[in-house]
């Protein structure tokens, strides 16, 4: 039985190797942070982090992840003790309906892991493939800027 390492915990998986990671996270591990949005890799709601890269869990068969640690939004902190990126999203009130937010957070997490001080264009370039239907993009960008330790003034500026 294959094992998956998620948020630092190695766990055995019953699912077949072609099963997308998203279903295993939600149905077997009870980690409901990553969301099913389009199921086609086009919206980013299912984004998780693997080896420093943002990965779409709805299109990532678990057979690809043997021995490769996965981080989900649950791995960044708890409601009582949120991680820095989560705290920034809370401080900027970045969520409206919240459905896209776990994906946005994880996309930003992968960005900041590789590039702790991204410029405005780099932030926008990284997040451009994640969709938000409520339109809280400006607050999401502000949250990422805050987590990156940047001036919050650039809101609304074009890159």
């Amino acid at each position: 039985m294959p094992t998956l390492t998620v948020n630092g915990r190695a766990q055995a998986v019953a699912a077949e190797p072609e099963t997308p990671l998203l279903y295993v996270l939600r149905d077997e591990f009870g980690l409901n942070g990553a969301k099913f949005g389009c199921g086609l890799g086009q919206c980013g709601a299912c984004t998780v982090e693997v080896e420093g890269r943002a990965v779409l869990s709805c299109l990532t068969p678990i057979g690809l992840l043997e021995g490769r640690p996965v981080t989900t939004v649950e791995g960044l902190g708890t409601p009582e003790n949120p991680g820095p990126l989560q705290a920034a999203f809370i401080a900027e009130n970045a969520a409206q309906c919240g459905y896209c937010i776990a994906g946005m957070v994880m996309r930003a997490y992968a960005l900041l892991r590789n590039n702790p001080h991204p410029g405005e264009a780099e932030i926008r370039d990284a997040l451009r493939l994640n969709l938000c239907r409520c339109g809280t993009h400006m607050r999401i960008l502000a949250a990422v800027r805050r987590a990156a330790g940047r001036e919050p003034a650039a809101t609304g500026a074009t890159p």
Binding site: P17, E18, G39, L40, L59, T60, P61, L64
Partner: peptide, 25 residues
Amino acid sequence: ARGAATYAGACAVCHESGGGAAGGV
């Protein structure tokens, strides 16, 4: 066989939807 599993989990959801002209993706 490993390639087939990747295809089934990563590609097939779009590329076996029947094609855009037939109402697929």
